[in-house]
Design a protein around this nucleic acid. Structure first.
Lengths: 138, 138
DNA sequence: TTCGATGTACGAAATCTTTCGTAGTAATGA
DNA sequence: TCATTACTACGAAAGATTTCGTACATCGAA
């Protein structure tokens, strides 16, 4: 039976989750193949890892055919949110702006992306203003 | 003698580094006190952790007086860079813009911060344009 | 049908991290 | 001086994570 408590994924588990997010439902072999690109390790290691993740309730699997197909049950968004949140809290003193500028400074974005971000910021400012107006009216 | 290879800090090590970045050079007692705010654990645990970090070359210490004073040897910036980089690569498909919008979406920034970011983006666009011009001239 | 390739299951070793107990030492004050 | 307190040092247990070997099942081709 699946373990109830949903612990933070370990590092190896993260690697596997990322592959499944990217590739969609996959077999152990497929995941292992990709993993091998980055990291030396045996097939049964990947297998065991994915079995453990399944036990923990992180992955579901379809075992109708001999070769099982695994899918992630963890939402990418929730992990993103958690990781980004921790980072802002721990490494950037709670300032998302600090993180943002750090990220942009070290990982140059294309000019399309830059204008997309600016548009996004404009929207944020707008909704901020309307909120203020509403409050003033009260 | 200090260990040469500089491995990625573990989670407990990160907690200690963050305290030292925040507080500056500190004694084990001081670090432990702060740590205790968040997390139950004995004094000697913190001591041992910091001794290990010292062995690994992550921390330096002044042991002129009986009570040693530890300082971090790891640059906050380098860890920020590393962590942000991994995150962009692994969780945001290499797009810093994705991370940026995610961060802003979940951790609202003040309007001062927003305009600071916009200024920053303008500058980025400018340097981007001058670069292009130079290339055209060639 | 037999062999080899490809799977799963799973125990247990190896490794890494965290935690703590105990021993010993210097400083402090009664 | 002697007890108490606050330290460091460090081995070793406890816990967590990762790795792998081995056993066994299934499938398909010779």
């Amino acid at each position: 039976m699946p373990n109830l408590k949903l612990n933070k994924p370990t590092e190896s588990e993260m690697a596997i989750l990322q592959i499944l997010w990217e590739e969609g439902p996959s077999t152990v072999r497929e995941v292992h193949e990709i993993l091998s690109g980055t990291k030396e390790s045996g097939y049964t290691t990947t297998l065991k890892l994915m079995q453990i993740m399944h036990d923990k309730g992180m992955l579901s699997r379809n075992d109708e055919s001999k070769t099982h197909i695994y899918s992630t049950l963890i939402k990418k968004e929730s992990v993103q949110k958690q990781v980004v949140g921790n980072m802002i809290k721990g490494l950037f003193k709670g300032s998302s702006a600090k993180l943002v500028m750090h990220a942009l400074g070290n990982h140059r974005a294309s000019s399309e992306e830059i204008s997309e971000i600016k548009k996004y910021l404009d929207e944020m400012e707008l909704t901020e203003m309307t909120k203020k107006k509403k409050n003033e009216k009260k």
